[in-house]
């Protein structure tokens, strides 16, 4: 295309020139849309791109990892940064469809331990917690997973997840396993048996095995069950709706959503730079205005940007940090299928 006429090349030149004025390059971001996109655009990649002179284009997809699989599998990668669940981040790394994060650029030290992994950099954290009906347990509220299992002190109907993920951890914590030994115990067959036996022992009191966040929130709000495991954000909205619900971050299991870079991303280097730029306390603090999940850079709470009442609702608030257990997602990626079989056996028994 060397013989371009003036007429056709002029607009091209103009657009190139216009781009060159403030863009060093282009980065495509794939997000789930909604409040995540809105917040990301406003406080994460929006300001970061502006600062670095990178033009950020945004697209949406419901599920991150399948999109990456498709792009990498078909050999036409066009997304540079993809929003993933931490589980997907680790699995994608194992599958070899994600670029390792360049931690020479990204400052890993400011992150909570376990929230910036080899292939995915955490954006926010959410916790699997215990919620209870404030009317049923008006006299004394349960405070630990041991209480969840104590049907004599706290009689009532329970709901557990129909999926072992986080429930195995919770059962072992209730059985007295120390948080730091949790994944060591889970890595033995005896440990798994112990967890499943613990849940099986509670089975008569489990009236529902929940399968979605909306469901467990509704179960608690309607008083269908008296105690449930579930995600803090969902219980928070059940409380905000005026439901007789309360929950504790004590012994909550923290998981994160994170940013990864697909293998062979066209603007891989710029993507790393952009991720590094986004990884700062202020951005994470400001994101809480958009989504009620917790910053995974603890310093965000020191910025003064998060109002106190909001901060108290976030699972990564310093007050709860010692009570929370950061989930070992790598363990789940490796053991998921096996544990799931055992869990379904137990459920259908």
């Amino acid at each position: 295309m060397k013989k371009t006429t003036i007429a056709t090349s002029l607009p091209l030149l103009v657009s190139l020139g216009a781009g060159a004025l403030h863009a060093e390059g282009v980065v495509n971001v794939l997000s789930p849309g909604g409040s995540v996109y809105e917040g990301g655009n406003a406080v994460l990649w929006g300001p970061a791109g502006e600062k670095l002179g990178i033009e950020v284009r945004s697209e949406t997809a419901d599920e991150g990892l399948p999109a990456v699989r498709l792009q990498v599998g078909s050999g036409s990668v066009y997304s540079d940064i993809v929003f993933l669940a931490d589980y997907e981040g680790t699995l994608g790394g194992m599958e070899g469809i994600l670029e390792p994060i360049d931690y020479s650029i990204v400052d890993k030290s400011q992150f909570m331990p376990g929230t910036a992994t080899d292939y995915c950099v955490g954006v926010y954290g959410y916790a699997t917690v215990m919620a209870w009906n404030t009317e049923t347990y008006a006299a004394k509220a349960p405070s630990s997973w041991a209480d969840f299992w104590d049907t004599e002190a706290f009689p009532g109907r329970r709901a557990l997840r129909g999926n072992p993920e986080t429930q195995i951890e919770v059962a072992l914590l209730a059985d007295g396993v120390a948080p730091e030994e949790l994944y060591d115990v889970m890595s033995t067959e005896e440990g798994l048996d112990r967890a499943l036996a613990k849940i099986f022992a509670l089975k008569d009191d489990i009236s529902v095995w929940w399968s979605s966040g909306a469901q467990h929130a509704q179960l608690m709000r309607d008083g269908e069950v008296d105690m449930s495991t579930g995600w803090n954000g969902r219980f928070q909205s059940a409380m905000d709706d005026g439901g007789p619900v309360d929950f504790t971050f004590n012994q909550g299991i923290l998981a994160t959503d994170c940013l990864g870079v697909p293998k062979g991303a066209p603007n891989k280097d710029l993507a790393m730079k952009l991720i590094a730029e986004m990884a700062n306390p202020e951005s994470q603090a400001k994101l809480t205005e958009y989504i009620s999940y917790g910053p995974v850079i603890p310093a965000a709470f020191d910025t003064g940007l998060i109002p106190d009442d909001v901060a108290k609702r976030l699972p990564t608030h310093p007050d709860y940090l010692n009570d929370l257990i950061v989930q070992n997602i790598g363990w789940w990626v490796e053991n998921n299928d096996h544990v799931r079989e055992l869990y379904e056996n137990m459920m259908t028994e």
């Binding site: 399948p66 699989r69 999926n163 009236s207 529902v208 095995w209 929940w210 399968s211 299928d337 459920m347």
Partner: peptide, 25 residues
């Protein structure tokens, strides 16, 4: 069964859907 069974009634289609959506297996 998924809604009214509350996880206490595990049927084949639920199992199929679960293996598919979560694990692409």
């Amino acid at each position: 069964p998924a809604i009214l069974g509350g996880g206490n009634v595990q049927v084949i289609s639920m199992r199929i859907a679960r293996s598919l959506s979560t694990y692409s297996n």
